[in-house]
Design a protein around this nucleic acid. Structure first.
Lengths: 227, 227
DNA sequence: CAACAATTTTTGGTATACCAAATCAGAAAT
DNA sequence: ATTTCTGATTTGGTATACCAAAAATTGTTG
C-alpha cells in the first residue's frame, strides 16, 4: 500500500490520470496519445507528459513506435495469456515463500480484507470491488517479504488490470471469489505449501481462459467497428 | 544478443553508457548522478540525461530520491538474494514451458552457444565470457516463446548482472559452467521437465549464496573505505 | 486517371531557460 | 562552543523553443 500515496510529480499525476482513463476504457486500444495535444488538453507542457507516457509504456499500457504517436496498447490474446501465466507463477511462488515467512499480521490483514470483500460484494461497484480483489492478491505477494517479487507481481497485476476487469465483469460470481479467497487464506494459515498451491490453482486456473475470451470479444468488437 | 542493436535515441545511448560504467564498477555504488553535471560532462542537455536516469532507475541500477541527486544503487544482500530467487523461478518456469514449446532451432542455438562458451572459456576476458553466459540463459527464457516471461527474465538478469559478475570472477570454474550448461541443454533436448528442473537447480542453487558473499564483500569494503 | 515527386505538416527528440523546494554554510546569539 | 536562523546555492521539476525526420498531401506529369 505504499505507492498509491504520493504522486509527487506532475508526470506521475498525469500518468495516473491516463492510466485510469485507459483501464476504464475511456481511452480504448489504438487511441493515439500525442505529446503535444494531450499536454495542451491537460494544460501542462510536453515534458511531464512525455515522462508520463514513458511510465505507461514501461507498464505495457501504451506502446511507443519510432516516429509515431504512442498508442494505447491492444494486447493480443496470446500476449495476455502469456502474462497471466507469469502472474500465476509469481503468485504461486509468493504463496510458497509466504508459507514460511508470513507474519501473523500478514495473515490477519488477509482475513480482514477477505471479510470486507465478502461484505461489500453486493453493495459496491465492479471497479471498487476489483481494487479490493487486487489488494487481496497483493497481500499474498507481500506476505513473502521479498520486495522484488512483490514489485514484479504488482506490475503484472497492474498490467493485467483491464483484462482481468473485463473478464470479471463478464462472469461475476460472489461465491467463487469469496470461497476461493478463503481457501487460499486457510492454506496459508496452515502454512501448507501444497494446499496453497492447490488453492491458487483452483482460483486462477480458469483465469487465463476467461481473460482470453474477454480480450477476444473486445478485439472482435474493434474489428467490426474500426476495420 | 538482440538488444544491443538499436540504441536509437540519445537517452538510450546515455543509458547504455551509464549502465556499462555502473556494471563495470567505474561508477561504484553511492555515486551521485547529477543531471546537470553528467549531462555537461557528456556534452548533452539535461533532457536526455534525465530520461536515461529514469531508464536506469527502472532497471534498479540507480535509485531516485525526492529532491536529491539519484545515486548508483547499493543493493543489500537481502535485496540481491530476493532477486536471485525470482530470477531462478522465472528461469525454471521458462525451462518447463520450453520443454513443450522449444523449437529445434532454439535447441541448436543453445548447443552452438554452449560450444562457443566451452571453446572461448580460457581465451576470453571475464566480461565477454559473462555476456555469453547471460546469452545462454536468455536463450532458455526465449525458448519458452512467452514474450512477457522472456522480458521479465531479461530484466532480472540485467539487474543482477553486476552481482553475478562479481560472484563469477570470484570463483571462475570452467568445468562447472560448461558441464552444467550441457546438462540443462540435454534435459531440454529430452523435453524432460523434471530433469530440466534438476539441472537448473544444480546450476543455480549456489548462485544465491555466491552472490550474497560477493555483495557482502563489496559492501564491507565500502564500509571500510567510506566510513 | 494513375503514379510519382516535391512540399508542407506533423511528430518526437533535444536544448535551454525558469522556478520552487530543499540543503548547506555562515553568522549571530546564547 | 553550540545552536539556530537566515540567505545563498544547488537540485530536480517544468515550460518553452528549436530541430530533424517521417508522413501526408498536393500538384504535376505520364
Amino acid at each position: 500500500m505504499s505507492e498509491s500515496a504520493a504522486e509527487n510529480t506532475l508526470a506521475e499525476q498525469i500518468a495516473a490520470q491516463l492510466r485510469r482513463d485507459i483501464l476504464r476504457g475511456k481511452l480504448p486500444p489504438d487511441t493515439a496519445i500525442k505529446e503535444r495535444d494531450n499536454a495542451a488538453e491537460l494544460g501542462v507542457s510536453r515534458t511531464p507528459m512525455r515522462e508520463a507516457i514513458r511510465i505507461l509504456a514501461q507498464e505495457g499500457l501504451v506502446v511507443l513506435r519510432p516516429s509515431r504517436s504512442p498508442i494505447v496498447a491492444r494486447p493480443t490474446v496470446k500476449e495476455v495469456h502469456d502474462q497471466v501465466v507469469v502472474l500465476l507463477a509469481l503468485e504461486k511462488l509468493s504463496a510458497q515463500i509466504a508459507c514460511e515467512r508470513a507474519t501473523e499480521v500478514d495473515l490477519s490483514r488477509l482475513a480482514e480484507l477477505n471479510e470486507q470483500i465478502a461484505e461489500a460484494y453486493d453493495h459496491v461497484d465492479a471497479l471498487d470491488l476489483f481494487e479490493m480483489d487486487m489488494a487481496f492478491h497483493r497481500l499474498i505477494a507481500e506476505a513473502a517479504h521479498n520486495e522484488a517479487l512483490a514489485e514484479t507481481h504488482h506490475a503484472y497485476l497492474a498490467r493485467l488490470w483491464r483484462a482481468r476487469f473485463l473478464s470479471a465483469t463478464m462472469r461475476r460470481n460472489r461465491e467463487r471469489v469469496v470461497s476461493h479467497h478463503g481457501a487460499i487464506m486457510n492454506a496459508l494459515r496452515a502454512r501448507d505449501p501444497e494446499a496453497v498451491d492447490a488453492a491458487l490453482d483452483q482460483h486462477l486456473s480458469n483465469l487465463a481462459e476467461d481473460i482470453s475470451a474477454a480480450i477476444e470479444a473486445e478485439n472482435a468488437e474493434a474489428e467490426r467497428a474500426g476495420g
